[in-house]
Deep mutational scan, measured.
Amino acid sequence: PEEVRRLVEELYRKGVSPEQVKKILKKQGIDEREIEKVLRRIG
């Protein structure tokens, strides 16, 4: 979803590592598979 992409990109631009991005967003209840999809697209 758009909102997940925005959150991931925001953290990524701040220099947060992909592993940390995953941890942070998982705590917020976001599906890990969604996060990984976005990270793959960015990375």
Rank of each mutant, 00 (worst) to 15 (best):
K27N: 14
E36L: 02
E3V: 10
P1D: 13
L11V: 01
Y12K: 06
K26Y: 07
R41H: 15
Q20M: 14
K23Y: 06
E2W: 05
Q20E: 14
R5P: 03
E34F: 05
D31V: 04
I42C: 05
R6Y: 07
E32V: 07
I35P: 00
L11P: 00
I24K: 06
Y12I: 15
R13A: 14
S17V: 08
S17Q: 11
P18F: 10
E34Q: 08
V21M: 10
E34D: 11
Q20T: 11
Q28V: 12
P18L: 12
V21Q: 01
R13N: 14
R5Y: 13
E19Q: 10
E2R: 09
G43Y: 01
E34T: 13
D31Y: 02
P18M: 12
V4Y: 03
K27A: 14
I24Y: 05
P18T: 14
E34N: 04
K27T: 12
K37V: 06
V21W: 02
L7H: 04
Y12P: 00
L25W: 00
R41E: 15
E3Y: 11
S17I: 07
V8A: 07
G43D: 15
I30H: 10
E2D: 14
Q28C: 03
E9F: 03
G29H: 04
P1W: 13
R13L: 12
E19L: 07
L25G: 02
Y12W: 10
E19D: 15
R6A: 11
L7Q: 10
I42P: 06
I30D: 00
I42A: 07
E2Q: 11
V21E: 00
K22L: 13
R5S: 10
P1M: 14
R6V: 09
E34P: 00
E32W: 04
L7V: 07
I35F: 02
L11I: 03
L7E: 03
G15P: 01
R5Q: 13
E10P: 02
K37C: 04
G15T: 01
I42D: 05
K22M: 11
G43H: 07
S17G: 10
I24S: 04
E32K: 05
Q20V: 12
L7D: 01
R40W: 03
S17W: 05
V21C: 04
E32C: 04
Y12A: 09
V38K: 01
V21A: 08
I35W: 02
V4A: 04
E32Q: 07
D31S: 11
E9G: 03
V21P: 00
E34A: 08
Q20Y: 07
G15I: 01
R13E: 13
G43V: 15
E10Q: 08
E34Y: 05
K23A: 14
L39M: 12
V4W: 07
L11W: 05
V4Q: 02
E2A: 11
L25E: 00
R13H: 14
L39Q: 12
P1K: 09
K37A: 11
Q28I: 13
S17L: 10
Q20R: 09
E2K: 10
P1R: 09
G43I: 15
L7K: 09
R6F: 08
E2G: 09
S17R: 10
G29N: 06
L11G: 00
V16L: 10
L39I: 15
E34M: 10
K23D: 15
P18K: 11
R40P: 08
E36T: 03
R13P: 01
V16F: 13
I35H: 00
R5F: 11
E2N: 10
E3T: 10
K37S: 07
K26I: 15
D31T: 07
E19S: 11
E9N: 05
Y12D: 05
R6W: 08
E36K: 03
I24D: 05
P18I: 12
E9A: 05
I30S: 01
L25V: 01
R33W: 08
K26D: 04
G29Q: 04
L11H: 15
V4R: 03
R41T: 15
K22E: 07
K14P: 03
I35S: 01
E2L: 10
P1T: 14
V16D: 04
V4D: 01
Q28H: 08
G15M: 04
K22D: 02
P18G: 09
E9Q: 06
G43K: 08
E36A: 02
K37Q: 09
V4K: 01
E36G: 01
G15K: 05
V4F: 04
R40L: 08
K26G: 13
V38D: 02
R5K: 12
G29E: 03
R33Q: 13
E2P: 08
